[in-house]
Simulated scan of single mutants.
Amino acid sequence: MTAWGGCGTARRERPRAFTVAGAGCLAAMVAAQVLSGLQPRPVRLTSVVVVLLAASALAFAAGRHGPRRAVGALAATVAAGYAAEWIGVRTGVPFGRYSYTPVLQPQVGGVPLIVALAWGGMGLAAHAVATAIVPGGGLARIATGAAALTAWDLFLDPQMLRLGLWTWADPGPYRGVPISNLLGWLLVSALVMALIDARLGRTDAVAAGLAVLYAVMAAMETLAFAAVFDPPDRLVAAAGGIAMGTFLVLAGRRRWPR
């Protein structure tokens, strides 16, 4: 009886340990973001923030879905993100003509590896939000997750252009970002959502930590563009904050009805 009881306790403690690890990585990511705002060259902490983002997402996913499925989902999305970027910098498909500057390192084939990791980390977070909004899976969940992930890019692209991390051959109307980029994000994000669905087994289980991660990113980016960056950009703060906030509200209402 003691042996079986100890085994059961270990099974219960393992998800809790992953959740605690995810919360620790999330707290460290927030601290790194705050420090980056105090640095004269905030790009130095960009890679640290992304690594902590991905580690937090992986830990939360492992706590809810198991480490094997979580690692498989993250690996698949990182690979898909890298492939999309590798094709993109060579052909302009599907985002439009752009190129990375040498600032973010290391790079393989002209693509910073940290960019692929960001696709994976936020892909898991957006998928969790979409799962809360659209239980049951299917194309509706994939489309919702793709839109939720693309909402993050309303912050990401203007911020990375500010930092000089990439350039567009033909700047567009949204703070220099072309509309083709958002369309490309929707397409690649849909692929990311489908891969996560397949790796996690099309489950309706939601890792609450991943939804919190999505909310923290939305809040930090909104605050940064509204008040921290010099100069601030309240248009981007409003656009990204409203877009990501809408998905959070929908997820909260569906997951925890009154």
Rank of each mutant, 00 (worst) to 15 (best):
E221D: 14
V192G: 04
D204T: 06
T222R: 02
A224Y: 11
V236C: 09
M217I: 12
S189F: 03
A198T: 14
V206N: 04
E221M: 15
A238R: 10
L200F: 07
A237K: 02
A205E: 15
M193W: 10
D197S: 13
L187C: 13
A194V: 11
P231E: 01
D197G: 12
L186M: 14
V216Q: 02
D230P: 00
A194Q: 14
P232Y: 00
L210D: 07
A224C: 02
A224R: 13
A208G: 08
V188Q: 02
M220C: 11
A226H: 01
M193E: 15
V192A: 13
A215L: 09
D230K: 03
G201C: 04
V188M: 03
R199W: 07
F229R: 12
A190P: 06
V192M: 10
V188D: 01
L213C: 02
D230E: 11
R202K: 11
S189K: 04
G201D: 03
V216Y: 04
L186Q: 10
V206D: 01
V216F: 05
T203I: 02
A238M: 11
F225C: 01
I196D: 13
L210T: 05
L223N: 00
G184P: 08
Y214V: 07
A226G: 02
A208E: 13
V228D: 00
V228N: 00
S189Q: 07
P232T: 01
D204N: 12
A239W: 10
A218N: 12
G184W: 06
A218V: 06
L223I: 14
V206M: 05
M217C: 11
A238E: 08
A226K: 00
A205T: 14
A211Y: 01
A239F: 11
D233Q: 09
D230M: 01
W185A: 03
A198W: 14
F225W: 03
L223A: 15
G209T: 05
